[in-house]
Simulated scan of single mutants.
Amino acid sequence: MVSASGTSLLLAVPAAVAGAASMGLASAAQARATKEVEVGRILDPGLLRGLAHRPLWLIGMVATGAGLALQLIALAYAPLLVVQPLLITSLMFAGVFSARLERRQLDRVMVAGALICVAGLAGFLVVARPTGDSSDFADATGPLPLAIALATLTIVALVVALLVRGSLRVLGLAVATGVLYGVTAGLMKVVAGQARDGLAEPFQNWTLYLVCLIGPLGFLLSQNTFQQGRFLTPALAVITALDPLVGVGIGVWWMGETANSAPWALAGEAMAGAVILVGIVLLASRAEHLARAQPGAGTDVPLNAPEGTA
């Protein structure tokens, strides 16, 4: 079992951060592009057909592909407990890219919220000291309870999204997306380990095919989330938080990865998690405040806003 240190981290950490940057660009580009097409039904593939003709969305797709490739590289050299929390920085990158796409300056409060997230992330990694680099499911773990919990959460979130409207619908879509993204990352870790034994090895196992099912489903839900929500940042904050949280859960419960479980460490990890949550809440609330105060000043301006408001 390989420790999450040395040369592996020198490869995995930059790849994970670069992947987060690519995902941030993808989110910013795709969120704007979804406002250019007619609002469709949830999980309707027709949304993707309409988006396929939007250059900005295609740029987002390229960025998504790059982000997934970089994430796969990171997962091949480091545990989920290292890689997944680093994905939280995609929220910061999304804010930066949104500002650039809208040709405006970064909001100081938004920058502060992003930095708070990064600080909490750094604290979590220092205290948790994640170890273990399993490339397959551990025999000693009990996968069923977590699988049931994740499936139930996803189904409930989708039911809420289908039955209600407004912010609760967006929340339901974001929760389902975050869970599916986290599960996809966990399964990609297994695929990355199988690829070490030969490029043909993943095609001989069920994990890759499950990734090909859950991954696109999560992606379609993310596009629904971006389109249904008036603002990008609150929904993206939920997705960004749940994705690594689910990934960490999979690393511990399914793959036998470990983290420092001493009482003082658990308290420190909880505090770091609270700091990350504060940063995410600050980002989301600031976006809503900017939109209410001046519709063209926020991170998540609809593309049909009148000229001169941005």
Rank of each mutant, 00 (worst) to 15 (best):
S3Q: 07
A4F: 00
L11K: 03
A12C: 02
V13K: 01
V13C: 01
G19M: 03
S22Y: 02
M23P: 00
L25I: 14
A28N: 12
A28S: 15
A29Y: 08
A29V: 08
Q30N: 15
Q30M: 15
R32T: 07
I42G: 02
L43V: 04
D44S: 10
G46L: 11
G50M: 09
A52N: 13
R54L: 11
R54N: 15
W57E: 05
I59W: 10
G60Q: 13
M61T: 13
A63Q: 10
G65F: 09
A66P: 00
L68M: 12
L70R: 02
L70S: 04
L70K: 00
I73Y: 03
A74D: 07
L75Y: 03
Y77N: 12
V82T: 05
V83K: 01
L86P: 01
T89F: 01
T89G: 02
S90G: 07
M92H: 01
M92E: 05
F93Y: 13
S98D: 14
A99S: 15
L101E: 04
R104I: 11
Q105V: 08
V109K: 08
M110L: 14
A112Y: 00
A114T: 07
A114K: 03
L115Q: 03
A122E: 04
V126G: 00
S134C: 09
D139R: 14
T141P: 06
P145D: 13
A147M: 10
A147W: 02
A147R: 01
L150T: 06
A151C: 07
T152M: 09
V156D: 04
L158M: 13
L162T: 07
V164M: 05
R165T: 14
G166N: 05
L171V: 14
V179T: 07
V179M: 04
V179Y: 02
G182W: 00
A185H: 10
A185K: 00
K189W: 04
V190N: 10
G193H: 09
Q194F: 06
A195Q: 10
R196G: 01
G198K: 10
L199V: 11
L199N: 11
W206N: 06
W206L: 13
T207M: 09
V211G: 06
V211E: 08
P216H: 12
L217M: 12
S222N: 15
Q223P: 08
Q223S: 11
Q228P: 01
L232I: 15
T233D: 07
L236Y: 14
L236A: 14
V238H: 06
T240M: 04
P244I: 04
P244E: 02
V248H: 00
V248L: 07
G249K: 00
G251W: 06
V252S: 06
W254F: 13
W254Q: 12
G256K: 06
G256Y: 06
T258S: 14
N260H: 09
P263W: 05
P263C: 04
W264C: 00
W264Q: 11
E269I: 12
A270P: 01
G273C: 10
V275N: 07
I276R: 08
I276N: 03
L282Y: 04
A284C: 10
S285L: 15
R286L: 12
Q294W: 09
D300T: 11
D300C: 07
L303G: 12
P306C: 02
E307W: 05
G308L: 07
G308P: 03
A310E: 15
